[in-house]
Design a protein around this nucleic acid. Structure first.
Lengths: 246, 246
DNA sequence: AGACGTGGTGAACGGTGTTTACCAGACTAA
DNA sequence: TTAGTCTGGTAAACACCGTTCACCACGTCT
């Protein structure tokens, strides 16, 4: 009777094994240096077998990206250094940097790699990430209400500016573009500190970054929407994963 | 008589053609989607011919990276908006962001791509980049002397913090990790502004980022030197280009 | 017991970076 | 002029890659 159920379980187990093998290999060798053949060899299946679990290498990435976001959201944030609401905000964004250190390959997959397939707009993994963002906004708003930032400061601006600044430090470190002997943590802390002080000095007042209040910062495929960029209209080349239809 | 000279010229012309073709293809298709075969086809040579001009695909990258730094240094900086020394500093670092927009593929090659070969420490292209950095430091020091930043502010800290913050904005934009509808220029300006205001408020005083005062922020191969990192010692996987000897 | 369906396979296709044996033609020296 | 050398370029091969497809064996259902 439980035949279908057992088959289902077995399918899931193999899919799990594929993801585990892919993750392990990605962590140690980097995404695009890992081949379907290597994954297949690791799980002792033929390369073709993988294609009955995932339509393409792209989709293995999608599944791992979802795991990455789950990891980012579910990892508990280190408690702030003091009761100062500034430190509360600092701890929240610092979480982003810590994640880039503790899970570098997930971070690279999710936020850096340009050779990785674009996540399509209607991706199921959106909801819980949006939830997290809402929580962050609320806590920032509370800090503003307590007077940690000048009245009129945009919580969204605070969020984006701090994440952007830390993203710079995280990517410089992760992509080995630090200066010789420079300490990534020190640079990250200093950059975050400067941005925080600037926001305390009023840089987030009347600062409208949100033109639409939409999604989260992942590599979304916006190709169908109007390209509303600056002076250099469309110089940015479309970089995609290797596919045959090129 | 001038035979050697003519041969030399011809060699150089072909090398130039290879680099031009590679650059054009990289700009439109992205670095790792371009094959030696495609470059060879473009210049109407056999793939093997390229290997008598460049030892590997890696070295074509090195040559292009050198061109990129040359481009970054030689492009004139947009004049500052006012006589305020703050605007002078702002204009200098903004140059970095503008470069990420006007030459996205060079920027990605030089500062983002983790799949690109590491530049070895004893690379000839160092000198003139170091020169540029010295000039920037001097201009920042002048701004400090004029009172634009608090006395005791470290010019090196100003430089690194501002570049790091802008690097975040540039990479978020370039890697398509902006929020939906967000304007890259607005985010970049806001982040830079916040960091500048923070430094004006004293975030750069007693801020020692330079442990060694060494190289420039490119992907240097530090493999021979002691890895002096933070809490997660060596989690960062070594990501290298596809090679057979792996 | 026999038909059916599904998961897995080997082999292939068209691509990749790189190496190698070889050749035609330009140059040089006798 | 002729013989020899040196060199730039090539075709073919090697060992990979992502992906597809015809096929087969086995478990399941009738």
């Amino acid at each position: 009777m439980g035949v279908k159920e057992r088959q289902e379980r077995e399918r899931e187990a193999v899919a799990r094994a594929i993801l585990d093998a892919a993750r392990d290999l990605f962590v140690t060798h980097g995404y695009h240096n890992v081949s379907i053949r290597k994954i297949a060899e690791r799980i002792e299946y033929s390369p073709a077998a993988i294609y009955s679990y995932f339509p393409s290498k792209d989709d293995i990435f999608f599944a791992l990206a979802a795991e990455g976001f789950q990891l980012l959201v579910s990892t508990p944030i280190e408690p702030p250094a003091s009761d100062d609401p500034i430190d509360d905000v600092r701890a929240m964004v610092w979480h982003y940097y810590v994640f880039s250190k503790s899970h570098p390959e997930y971070f690279a997959l999710m936020f850096i790699d340009r050779t990785v397939p674009r996540i399509t707009r209607d991706w199921q993994g959106f909801a819980f990430v949006a939830d997290m963002k809402r929580q962050l906004h609320e806590r920032i708003q509370r800090a503003i209400d307590k007077g940690a930032f000048p009245a009129g400061t945009s919580p969204h601006a605070v969020f984006r500016i701090l994440v952007t600044a830390l993203h710079g430090a995280a990517t410089l470190r992760l992509c080995s573009r630090m200066e010789h002997g420079e300490d990534g943590d020190v640079l990250a802390r200093a950059t975050l500190h400067a941005a925080l002080e600037g926001l305390r000095a009023g840089a987030g007042v009347n600062c409208h970054l949100d033109t639409c209040h939409g999604s989260t910062p992942m590599n979304i495929d916006h190709s169908r929407e109007s390209a509303s960029s600056g002076a250099h209209p469309s110089v940015i080349p479309e970089v995609r994963t290797d596919r045959h239809d090129s």
